[in-house]
Simulated scan of single mutants.
Amino acid sequence: MEEKSKIYLFMELEISSAEYTKKKKEIIMFIQGETGIKLSDVIFKDDMFMTQVGKFSKAELLKKYKKQNCPEVNS
């Protein structure tokens, strides 16, 4: 069985919850149309964890994403 790669786009974009799903679909379709790359998901700034110095915490972000959205994602 062939393992498929997944591509996730993490964006610093503040967005209302009403626009969340629509904007995700638009971005996924745009990226695929322009590059041919199919994104697995788009994660916006409000879903991201920040460190005390203001940087994105990649470890916490991945842990949250695995737990809530995509348990099959491997580190």
Rank of each mutant, 00 (worst) to 15 (best):
6 K>R: 14
8 Y>V: 15
35 T>S: 15
14 E>I: 07
72 E>M: 07
44 F>Q: 08
44 F>K: 08
50 M>I: 09
23 K>I: 10
45 K>L: 11
13 L>D: 12
1 M>S: 13
58 K>A: 12
40 S>C: 06
42 V>P: 04
32 Q>S: 12
20 Y>H: 09
13 L>V: 13
36 G>Y: 03
9 L>E: 04
27 I>L: 13
8 Y>I: 15
25 K>A: 14
17 S>F: 04
23 K>G: 01
23 K>V: 11
49 F>W: 12
49 F>Y: 15
63 K>W: 01
26 E>V: 08
11 M>C: 15
17 S>I: 04
32 Q>W: 07
69 N>V: 10
42 V>R: 04
9 L>S: 07
20 Y>R: 09
22 K>S: 12
64 K>L: 02
8 Y>N: 05
39 L>H: 07
58 K>I: 13
16 S>E: 04
74 N>C: 01
69 N>I: 10
36 G>S: 03
62 L>H: 04
26 E>I: 09
2 E>A: 15
28 I>T: 07
8 Y>H: 12
66 K>W: 00
74 N>K: 08
1 M>L: 09
73 V>G: 00
32 Q>M: 05
73 V>Y: 05
35 T>L: 10
30 F>H: 09
30 F>A: 13
27 I>Y: 06
73 V>C: 03
73 V>Q: 02
9 L>K: 00
38 K>T: 14
2 E>I: 14
60 E>G: 00
19 E>A: 07
30 F>W: 08
17 S>R: 07
47 D>P: 00
54 G>L: 05
65 Y>M: 02
38 K>W: 08
71 P>I: 02
71 P>M: 01
51 T>Q: 10
45 K>Q: 14
65 Y>I: 06
24 K>D: 01
4 K>A: 14
16 S>Y: 02
66 K>A: 00
51 T>E: 06
10 F>K: 03
44 F>N: 09
15 I>H: 01
56 F>M: 08
59 A>Q: 12
20 Y>L: 10
30 F>S: 14
17 S>P: 03
31 I>F: 12
69 N>M: 04
30 F>R: 12
9 L>Q: 03
31 I>N: 04
34 E>H: 06
31 I>W: 04
36 G>W: 05
21 T>F: 09
6 K>V: 14
2 E>Y: 11
43 I>R: 06
10 F>E: 06
25 K>R: 10
47 D>H: 05
37 I>N: 05
11 M>R: 10
50 M>R: 09
2 E>F: 12
60 E>C: 00
41 D>I: 00
26 E>P: 07
66 K>C: 02
19 E>W: 03
15 I>E: 03
75 S>I: 03
42 V>C: 06
58 K>F: 06
65 Y>K: 01
45 K>S: 15
50 M>Q: 10
51 T>I: 07
16 S>F: 03
57 S>G: 06
58 K>L: 10
36 G>F: 02
58 K>Q: 13
73 V>R: 03
54 G>D: 02
57 S>F: 04
29 M>K: 13
33 G>S: 04
51 T>S: 12
35 T>Q: 13
